[in-house]
Amino acid sequence: MKFLKAFNNNVVLVKDSSQIEWIVIGNGIGFQKHYGDIIKEEHIRKKFITTEIDNQISLDDILHAITFEEHQMTMDIVQLAKKELDINFSSINYLTLADHLHHAIVRSKEKNTLSIDQWEVSKLFPKEYAFSKKVIDYLKCNYNFHLPASETTYLTFHFITVRNNWELVSQTMEMTKLMSRIVEIIQYDFQEKMDNTSSSYSRFITHLRYFFLRYSTEEKTTYPLNKDIIKLVSEKYPRAFNTGKKIASFLYEEMKWTLTDDELVYLTFHIIRQMDKGD
């Protein structure tokens, strides 16, 4: 590969023999390099095709700032996430995580800790949250880097973003707030806490996740129900059905999403399973 320009000593822009441009990462890979110099493959630790990265992130700002050690941390985390969560990072996912780690390091040195509402993240996404705690321990043991406990939530957002094939963590944060509010509506109506350790709760959260994914991509449901079934459910389970209607009103007010009758019935079934009571 031929060297085109350096973002810093560890991150450079190159072009391969097919004239495709890549961003490549390696320890000192850009040091004293000049236009047209050869970059050997064995010196490259990670690479991205530039067309995989769009304008939603400030590429120059991120690549100029991140050190090789921070890239190494990110690569380690990506490999651990692939193994334990079975998720794969896109180029944007990788760079936004690296950028987050960089700023977390800066904040820790300045003793400037971010605060964030938990939104019951540990209950909504227990597997990803538990993994985020492992990541913090891993960075402490392997890099002597001490992330504050508040970073657990932010890391969880990154892993959920990857799982949902989204590019922006802000989408995951918005989804999480909506989920938390829906749980609050159900618990308030039934005056009972959900068992967030149960399998039915896990299925409910998964249902909400895919529901939000469908609506965010404007994908319509493909499993229409018979109108008689809808009427039967509304009559047999009026309490859960009415709670579902409250959730539908909330989603319309917040997101301008209009739930179909079919989606309202599926939501009602999940509410019934959660509360495990008749109406």
Results as ranks from 00 to 15, higher is better:
139 L>F: 14
141 C>N: 15
141 C>Q: 14
141 C>F: 15
143 Y>V: 10
143 Y>L: 13
146 H>K: 06
146 H>F: 09
147 L>R: 07
148 P>C: 02
148 P>N: 02
149 A>G: 11
150 S>F: 01
150 S>Y: 00
152 T>N: 07
152 T>K: 01
153 T>S: 07
153 T>F: 07
154 Y>F: 12
156 T>E: 07
156 T>W: 00
158 H>T: 03
159 F>C: 11
159 F>Q: 11
160 I>M: 12
164 N>K: 11
166 W>F: 08
168 L>W: 05
173 M>N: 12
173 M>H: 10
173 M>D: 09
177 K>N: 00
177 K>I: 02
179 M>A: 05
184 E>R: 12
185 I>T: 09
185 I>V: 12
185 I>E: 14
186 I>K: 11
186 I>T: 11
189 D>E: 10
190 F>S: 03
192 E>D: 05
192 E>Y: 01
193 K>N: 14
193 K>Y: 02
196 N>M: 03
197 T>N: 12
198 S>P: 00
198 S>F: 03
199 S>M: 10
202 S>C: 06
202 S>G: 07
204 F>D: 03
205 I>C: 10
207 H>L: 00
209 R>C: 03
212 F>M: 01
213 L>K: 12
215 Y>R: 14
217 T>M: 01
218 E>A: 11
218 E>Q: 11
219 E>F: 00
220 K>A: 10
220 K>R: 12
222 T>S: 15
222 T>F: 06
224 P>N: 00
225 L>N: 10
226 N>P: 07
227 K>D: 13
228 D>Q: 05
228 D>W: 01
229 I>M: 13
231 K>E: 08
231 K>A: 11
232 L>E: 14
233 V>P: 05
233 V>Q: 09
235 E>C: 15
236 K>L: 07
238 P>K: 08
239 R>S: 10
239 R>F: 06
240 A>S: 12
242 N>E: 03
242 N>I: 01
243 T>C: 08
243 T>D: 08
245 K>P: 04
245 K>Y: 00
248 A>T: 03
249 S>W: 08
249 S>D: 15
250 F>R: 08
252 Y>T: 06
253 E>L: 00
253 E>R: 03
254 E>A: 13
255 M>N: 13
256 K>F: 06
256 K>G: 11
259 L>C: 02
259 L>E: 02
260 T>F: 07
261 D>Q: 13
262 D>P: 04
264 L>R: 10
265 V>R: 04
266 Y>H: 07
266 Y>G: 02
267 L>V: 08
269 F>D: 06
270 H>F: 13
